[in-house]
Design a protein around this nucleic acid. Structure first.
Lengths: 202, 202
DNA sequence: CTGGTAATTAACCATATGGTTAGATTAAAC
DNA sequence: GTTTAATCTAACCATATGGTTAATTACCAG
């Protein structure tokens, strides 16, 4: 083994890997322990139960996925520069952890309550709501067409995230190998910007 | 109980419900039996194992999701009429079983092999590949701009499907109740067509 | 009605799984 | 060096879970 890091983190790393891959229901405590190279009892020693451990991993994941979005959305620049910036940096961000979106979306669907509760705790993502207002403003000032800000946000998100969530399906149907798929995603940054621009440019 | 349908179908119905809701790993045979109102042993009597039963449900689900797409894509009409037709009928179709896409996508991610193998069996969805060629043709004939047919298909799919997959997340973040969400999805049909048109109209 | 087949069930089995415990080991405090 | 607390492990436990079986019931042809 390379490093001798503290056990707590070792467990979290392992749990992340297993939970993200298999989901809450599919993950086995033993697998997490094996992945971390420690005894199964340690998991409970440090994190009491599977659910508690999952909650930590899940919250971090959700923070990454949504938090990243908030960060990107709140970069201070005019809207027409912002769109390509959002697209590029969000896709690049997701590419570093391509399975996170599927994991997060699936688990939210599985237990919406847990997610909704977390929303109350963590606040309502002011960055995102601010972005919506920004769109409305830009519309009024004729920088862009007046479009529904929700639909615009949803469009950007859909175009960016869906290809990751549906990757095996897309690759399977369109018969793309990994290289082709990555090239396609690289192109896609430009395409998404084009599509959005075509729609909102005044 | 209302109906006295044959047990085989009763089981499949119940299995569909439970598998789609909880996924393969999260579903319990006992829950399926309860849902069908029969003894657990019947499940094995008719369908041998959990995996076999799942396969049936999964294949039907995948058939619905992809098959429907193929049907819609192959409606014979000029491309500029086809886009809104695709959007409308695909969204309406998915609305009837809103949890199918998440289920299918998630399980494909969980076991890509099973899916890829099924692709080989069932053929390569000629309807879909035909649609791609159609796009290229329409581009050459200047009915629309020359765009990557794959990107176009992926755009339409992303815009239509993602909101269903991400529904609880979207509702949670944007604070939409069910009524507002449904209104938004109704609007969305028009929006998606607008967006795509803005991009491809020559 | 009767013999036989298919459908159905209750009880059971083996194993997997989340979780616990009692004791060992390590490391730090004194 | 001894004591004490934190860390770690092997073995164990209770229950859940997929799957089986032996026996019972429903059904239908003769």
């Amino acid at each position: 083994m390379a490093q001798e890091r503290n056990t707590e983190e070792l467990i979290i790393e392992a749990a992340k890997k297993i939970f993200v891959k298999r989901g809450l229901a599919g993950a086995r405590m033993q697998d997490i322990a094996d992945e971390a190279g420690i005894n199964k009892a340690m998991l409970h020693y440090y994190y009491r139960s599977k659910d508690k451990l999952f909650e930590i991993v899940f919250n971090e994941a959700i923070g990454k996925v949504i938090g990243r979005l908030g960060t990107v959305l709140s970069q201070p620049m005019p809207i027409l520069e912002k769109v390509p910036a959002i697209v590029e940096s969000y896709i690049d961000g997701v590419m570093e952890a391509p399975y996170l979106p599927m994991f997060v979306l699936n688990e939210i669907n599985q237990q919406p309550e847990m997610f909704l509760q977390r929303l109350k705790t963590q606040g309502n993502f002011p960055n995102i709501l601010l972005f919506l207002k920004e769109i409305v403003e830009a519309g009024k000032q004729r920088q862009i067409k007046e479009v529904s800000p929700i639909q615009l946000l949803l469009n950007i998100l859909s175009l960016c995230v869906f290809p990751f969530v549906a990757r095996p399906m897309v690759q399977g149907i369109l018969q793309l190998d990994n290289v082709q798929y990555n090239m396609m995603m690289e192109d896609r940054k430009k395409v998404i910007t084009e599509v959005i621009f075509a729609w909102i440019k005044a």
